[in-house]
Computed example of a mutant assay.
Amino acid sequence: MLDYDKEADAYDASRGGEPRARAAADAVLGLIPAHTGRLLDLACGTGIVTRRLASARPGLRVTGADLTYGMARMAAARLPGAIVLADSRRLPFADGTFDAVTSVWLLHLLDDAQDVRGVVAECARVLRPGGVYVTTVDKAAAHDVGSDIDEVLAGRPRRAARDAAVLVEEYAAQCGLLPAGPARFLGHGQGRSPRRTAADLGRGWFTMLPPGDPLTERFAAHLAALPDQDRPRADPVFSLRSFRKPAG
């Protein structure tokens, strides 16, 4: 797991920057009704997407929440007075506070199914009746674009996806939320190159491949043998799901 306090300053540059943030925000807004008044953006990170959500519609009041101080500090510089430190599993808001809740690139980070259920339940709790919850799903799978890099990594050990769409839909249903539609967006600047992927292995970004482990080193050697070491392969396409809280 990354240390997001340490990663905060360089995070945006390593994650596609403004083009990816624009694509994410546009896709999220496409799933949120035009009349939405208050929106909570969970795991807002540096606020790069949150700021775009806030500026897209004049009547939309956006609050960002993140667990890590480093990320929240950067988000607060982008949206002064609108960012809080909060654990998504125990939100400091009353029932029915928001017309919409978003969690972009959050659920895949959680440790187990209980945590994912807890976050989805909290999102449902703070939604008003008729409100909408929007979240990314299947993040890890989006990075498998059929490239030669994916062929090299195909046999690596993988952690079970915490944000698998079928599971998130199940948890949402348990909380009384109804499916309200999907969306997709391009992860600009996220296409892997062999050299960058080997560096990510060395940093521990692949959770089941510890740095220095013989298996990790074997994968790194295979990556080093690929052609076009610095050419990014195709960008991933990320998936969103939206859910509505019944009005009755």
Rank of each mutant, 00 (worst) to 15 (best):
57 R>E: 15
144 D>C: 08
130 G>C: 12
200 D>E: 12
163 D>L: 05
9 D>G: 03
248 G>D: 15
149 I>N: 05
104 V>G: 01
136 T>H: 11
107 L>C: 04
136 T>L: 07
226 L>V: 10
238 F>M: 15
234 A>N: 06
8 A>Q: 04
143 H>V: 01
84 V>W: 03
76 A>I: 05
86 A>M: 04
160 A>I: 02
139 K>C: 09
138 D>I: 02
200 D>T: 08
73 R>S: 05
219 F>I: 14
85 L>T: 02
73 R>W: 07
60 L>A: 11
55 S>N: 05
78 R>A: 10
102 T>N: 07
68 T>R: 04
9 D>E: 14
86 A>P: 13
30 G>L: 05
217 E>V: 10
194 P>R: 06
147 S>T: 08
50 T>F: 02
29 L>E: 09
216 T>I: 06
91 L>T: 00
136 T>E: 10
190 Q>R: 14
13 A>T: 08
123 C>E: 03
47 G>V: 06
16 G>T: 07
77 A>K: 12
2 L>C: 08
72 A>R: 07
201 L>G: 04
145 V>R: 02
147 S>V: 11
59 G>T: 10
225 A>N: 10
143 H>Q: 08
247 A>W: 05
199 A>R: 15
128 R>P: 00
235 D>Q: 07
12 D>R: 03
64 G>Y: 05
40 L>R: 04
236 P>W: 04
80 P>D: 04
76 A>K: 01
209 L>H: 12
28 V>T: 11
213 D>W: 11
23 A>R: 09
161 A>F: 07
219 F>P: 05
209 L>K: 10
142 A>W: 08
41 D>P: 09
134 V>W: 01
192 R>H: 13
54 A>F: 07
87 D>L: 10
6 K>P: 14
218 R>F: 02
99 D>Y: 08
161 A>L: 11
175 C>A: 08
141 A>M: 08
224 A>I: 01
127 L>K: 01
97 T>I: 01
3 D>P: 14
77 A>R: 14
20 R>Y: 11
133 Y>S: 06
69 Y>I: 13
154 A>S: 11
199 A>V: 07
237 V>I: 14
37 G>T: 13
63 T>V: 14
131 G>W: 03
42 L>D: 05
241 R>C: 01
181 G>N: 01
152 V>F: 07
204 G>I: 05
56 A>S: 15
4 Y>A: 12
219 F>W: 06
181 G>V: 04
24 A>L: 13
167 L>P: 00
6 K>W: 00
121 A>Y: 00
65 A>H: 09
82 A>Y: 01
